[in-house]
Simulated assay, not measured.
Amino acid sequence: MNGILSRILAVALMSLPISAARAQDDCGPDRPPCDEPHDGPGCLQPQCCELVCKIDVFCCEVVWDETCVEQAGELCGDVYCPDFGGCLEIHDTGGCLDETCCELVRMHDPFCGYGTWDEICVAEAESWCAGTVECPIVPPPNAREEGEPCLERLNDGCGGGAIEINASSIACGDAIYGKTTTKVPRDVDWFRLPETRDGPLVIRLETEFPARMLIVTGSCEGPISVLDRRPVDPCRNDEWVVDLPEGEYHLVVEAGADGRSLRSGLPCDEIDPKNPPDDDEEPLPRTYGLHYLLELACTAAPCPGDLNGDGMVDGVDLGLLFAAWGECTDVCPADFDGDGTVDGQDLGGLFVGWGGCP
């Protein structure tokens, strides 16, 4: 009873409004968690702390007691950042201590907030938190539009209960300027790969958002099998060489990371005519762009070492290899073994193929 009276008296003696600056001073990573009572005002998570202190100044002026904890439980169900644990370290709670990085990862991969900060969250933090977030793609003149508004689902494979695979076609030499979104149902773009192939396929993807490519086979009657997958970081481009046996295959482009599909953080940027927003409605937050550029090249049987494509492995190719010597910073044709460095192993690979290509 004395505690309650003391609390009432303390609040009565305080000026009721609390400034934003004062709330910020008492909220942040140097404070204990918001879901635990503790000596002193404020708590770890600034968003949650400020929500509570707007309605109960005692929590940011005097002490964060059991009442503050109860209010945090009612007001802060969707607030996960920051929280204890390094963003580049695996830990068994959600969130991490760097609020900006934590929010970027959690926004696109909610499991990293309400679940645990696992190895996938760590990999996402490593790839995204120090990277570029704005990189609008300018499609080349030969690129064609994917042709699927982000409010519709026209090439989503077996989504929506489809009996047959809904897919766009992509031919050798095509460049497709596409868009994806995590708006429910999540957008997944399927492309039917050419059935006639004389050699490996070279797939190039440039993306504004965290993306993932998958090679799949099968039918909507089941099973659909994923043969391989490859993540591409936002604001990067990647080249993927795949050599497939005879058969029918599809390439899937989706929002994703290595190990997990992304299901939030990329809202559609088009107005739904059937459900337009209110005049005062704030748009959903979005950090990354929604576009990608997909290109497909079909190659003949591989000729290791023929870097200039003249049908010969000779001194010209040797010079190109030495010009690219060292760590790769982008697409690196001279990196024959794909280890990210042009070195002696690649030089040996060039000499293995010396002479005329078969």
Rank of each mutant, 00 (worst) to 15 (best):
D65P: 05
E36A: 06
C68E: 08
L51V: 00
D92M: 05
R22M: 05
E36L: 09
C68H: 10
P37N: 00
C43R: 10
K54P: 02
P82F: 03
C48I: 12
C59L: 01
V57N: 12
C53K: 02
R31N: 03
L44I: 07
Q47N: 15
C59H: 03
D92F: 09
C76I: 05
Q24G: 01
F84Q: 15
Q45F: 04
E36V: 09
D83P: 05
E50D: 02
L44F: 11
C81S: 11
R22T: 04
P32V: 06
E61F: 01
G28I: 02
H38A: 01
P29A: 15
D26M: 15
V62F: 09
D26K: 15
C27S: 07
Q71K: 06
F58E: 07
Q24N: 13
A20F: 05
L75K: 12
W64R: 02
Q45A: 10
P32A: 07
E70V: 11
C27E: 06
H38E: 00
P37D: 01
A21I: 12
A72L: 02
D35T: 08
D30C: 00
D78T: 09
P29H: 07
G42D: 00
P32Q: 04
F58N: 10
A23G: 04
E66Q: 15
H91W: 10
L51M: 13
V57S: 15
L75I: 08
G40C: 00
